[in-house]
């Protein structure tokens, strides 16, 4: 029950204040914003992209709504969630409320007027592009904000990092494309020519973004490892208790497998997209996006306290 010197030596486990619910929230908010952005961009591309754009515009706001369920369930006082928007001048949670709320409202308007139950926007291309332009801007803010939310925490240098918003942005775009690939490959008409072309296009876009994401993951961890203050967090992922999830879950299944699949599917030699493989690749890629959020949330370690020439750890302390 008492504190021992060993417990307080630098190193040890990551943060345990925020757990899987926050990781799930960050992930789903990213997927939703990514799916909406992908759908709206596909809508700009014009004919031939109807299924992908309608699916993305519909799934996006709904996934973001689901994400907030996790955030509210994580509160100690779930009924007080309305107070979360009270201090946008200094708190990134409040700013998040002011980003997510208009995003969901614009997204729902977009669904109601374009997909179901009305189709008013179909004949009004200017209004549609204007609405979707605003929607895309809010979607991008949603993706970046999840990184800034963690980045505002100064004593956790694993989060207080300029690369993190970029990493979350790329992961949100990639998982957004993957949820569309999954939805399209699940549809009974997946072998039809129209869907086939859209699936191919989504895989091509995702290969580019996932490739960038892999590079950013590398440089993010490289940068964290190079700085003594954030090295314990990087070591937790690379060789410590989170290493199995990092290497097997994120690197092999969540990034390498979907990326290799997409590159093979796109090669001139392959004539068609295997829907079963596309489904598997997108499921693994989505799981990778969730694990990425979990690894970053769980791997955050506070800088040790410095006193009398010693370093003392404040996380993982014994209490009574």
């Amino acid at each position: 029950m008492t504190n021992t010197g060993l417990r307080n030596s630098p190193g040890g486990s990551g943060q345990a204040v925020w757990g899987w619910k926050v990781a799930a929230y960050l992930f789903l908010a990213g997927v939703g914003a990514g799916a909406y952005a992908a759908g709206a961009v596909a809508d700009f591309l014009g004919t031939g992209w109807e299924t992908a754009s309608r699916t993305g515009i519909t799934l996006g706001p709904l996934l973001v709504l689901v994400s907030t369920v996790f955030l509210i369930a994580d509160l100690g006082v779930p009924g007080g969630f309305l107070r979360a928007g009270a201090r946008p001048r200094s708190s990134w949670i409040s700013r998040g409320v002011l980003i997510l709320t208009p995003f969901v409202i614009i997204g729902l308007i977009n669904i109601f007027l374009l997909v179901w139950p009305w189709h008013l926007l179909q004949g009004a291309p200017t209004a549609r592009l204007a609405l979707e332009g605003v929607g895309i801007a809010l979607a991008l803010l949603t993706m970046v904000y999840t990184g800034l939310l963690l980045g505002a925490v100064r004593p956790i240098l694993f989060w207080n990092n300029a690369m993190l918003p970029v990493l979350f942005l790329l992961s949100a775009l990639s998982t957004g494309l993957m949820v569309l690939m999954l939805a399209l490959s699940l549809s009974p008409a997946a072998s039809g020519f129209g869907l086939h072309a859209q699936l191919y296009g989504l895989a091509r876009a995702d290969a580019l973004i996932l490739g960038f994401e892999a590079v950013v993951v590398f440089f993010y961890l490289q940068g964290c490892y190079a700085s003594p203050a954030s090295r314990p967090s990087a070591e937790l992922l690379l060789t410590g208790s989170l290493a199995p999830i990092f290497w097997a879950g994120l690197v092999a299944s969540g990034i390498a497998f979907p990326l290799v699949y997409e590159l093979v599917a796109l090669s001139p030699a392959s004539k068609e997209v295997e829907t079963a493989l596309a489904m598997a690749a997108s499921i693994f890629g989505l799981a990778g996006g969730l694990l990425l959020r979990y690894l970053i949330v769980a791997g955050g370690m506070r800088v040790p306290l410095k006193a009398a020439g010693m370093l003392l750890n404040t996380s993982g302390k014994a209490r009574f």
Binding site: Q15, V17, W18, D74, G76, I93, R154, P155, R302
Partner: peptide, 22 residues
């Protein structure tokens, strides 16, 4: 009366001086 238990403050405190009474 106002706290909603989001624990952002616990994450942000460099000293680990805040506690969640769950």
């Amino acid at each position: 009366e106002t706290c909603i238990g989001c624990r952002y403050c616990m994450v942000a405190c460099p000293y680990g001086s805040r506690y969640f009474n769950d």
